[in-house]
Amino acid sequence: MKDTYGMIKLFFKFFWLSVMLVAFYFLFFHKFEDYRSEIPEKYIRPGETAESFDLMAFTFYYSDGLRLIPEDRKIRIEDNPLALAGRVLNEYMKGPENTDLFMTLPEKTLVRNFFLLDNVLYIDFSREIQSNYLGGIIPELHAIYGIVNTVCQVGAVESVKFLINGEDTSKLISHLFTGEPVSPDNNLIHRF
């Protein structure tokens, strides 16, 4: 038994020595060469490379049941404010990434149309915003101000006017008056 143990010890001595030698070689003497594609560049189709665009940080507001909680997202920069608002709306309707947060708008609500007029963004919602609404004032405040506080970060948008199925309504959901354009309300946002 003792002999075999001594053999194993000897084997490990040589093993560690060889490992150290190899590592030493790779650290100081070996030169890594870059991998080069063998296909000439002219044969690569231009469509295969992704078009590069700049992203900007944007804060989205979703509900935790009590307050509006900010969530940072990246949005593609657009020069046209209407196009930027469209990208923001599109991204907002996807819902929160944080699973603890809730989508502020009722289920199956769709944005039918939107347009910008005199710094007021008109958003036309489908009928589901009323019919699928579950009730209560706090969810209603969040549904309205979640989207208003988010969209009003676009420079040219100062307030939001809501429409339902293309019609002007004095009440978007149940309690709040939305006959006039709605400006953002920062009291509803949670302060960390």
């Binding site: 935790d64 009590l66 809730f102 579950l134 009730g135 209560g136 706090i138 969810p139």
Partner: peptide, 10 residues
Amino acid sequence: HCGASLNPQI
């Protein structure tokens, strides 16, 4: 009125 919250624990 009565209140409602999206989070049923509140």
